[in-house]
Write a protein that binds this DNA or RNA. Structure first.
Lengths: 150, 150
DNA sequence: ATCGCGTAGTTGCAAATGCAACGATATGCT
DNA sequence: AGCATATCGTTGCATTTGCAACTACGCGAT
């Protein structure tokens, strides 16, 4: 039990370190290539995956795990860069749809090869398929539980 | 091969989401309890674990995966809060030792129960011991590889 | 219709971050 | 010794973040 705890606590600590280390590396690689940061990719990718390339602000914020106010500013930047647009939503005059533009689609496709290569060399390369399955399953369970309640 | 890739890419995506979600939850819990953020805990814990409760700035920065300039400011805050001190290093007049204070030790001990409880309810609770072992091993391998080179 | 409450998104302000430039010291080479 | 180069840590400045307040709208009850 004590040992279980140590193993799990250790896994958490390693998770934090891995995230910090790998994300830093990836951000550096993107910056060096003159590409926008990871956060931009997340937005573009979520929009691209969504029906009609559009998503409400709050839904987008939820999917990329970002506070509303932060998404407001991030969306401002993406919009300034012509990678997405805000459109009034038909049935709710309070809100907007974020819609990815052609340039946004192109940018996501432009970023992906480098991002993919970085994931490969920093992450995928070092883990087995079994491990990947385990990591995906276990963490997804934790995320799901956290999403529902506390 | 394609499937392997998807599994690994998916694991990466879930890792990012899990990190964002769980860290946000933990920060909120700490803030609600009037406790300092996670970054402070990391510093205090690294110092406490280190020989003599002291570590050079650059070494501390490396261990908590933080840029030098960021550590400078973080250390300023911790020092203002009397949780650590900077001391001149004997054999290198450029650098400092960060030394944890009694108040720093006390603060780390004060934070730990809540942090531990959050890790338990958000993370440990949802994964098996086997999974924890796998996560720890696999991610540690990636971190080690990233630490060495690119 | 109006009141009250909840939600969508934005904004101001203070704090934190990242990056490049800097002063100071150490180190290696000649 | 003298000079070039690299490292330690800090600082200035611009960008990003986080939190709390705020506007605007939706929704249910009266």
């Amino acid at each position: 039990m004590t040992k279980d705890h140590d193993l799990k606590g250790h896994a958490w600590a390693v998770l934090l370190t891995a995230h910090a280390t790998l994300v830093e590396r990836i951000e550096t690689a993107l910056a060096e290539a003159g590409l926008p940061p990871l956060g931009w990719y997340d937005v573009l990718w979520e929009l691209e995956k969504a029906e009609g390339g559009r998503l409400r602000m709050h839904e987008l914020a939820r999917r990329i795990v970002l506070s509303r106010s932060n998404l407001t500013r991030l969306a401002d930047r993406l919009e300034d860069a012509k990678l997405m647009e805000r459109e009034d939503t038909p049935h709710d005059r309070r809100g907007y749809d974020c819609v990815i533009t052609r340039a946004g689609l192109a940018m996501r496709k432009k970023i992906w090869p480098l991002y993919k290569a970085e994931i490969e060399s920093l992450f995928s390369r070092h883990i087995t398929v079994q491990e990947a399955r385990t990591i995906g399953d276990a963490l997804a369970r934790a995320v799901k539980a956290a999403g529902g309640e506390g």
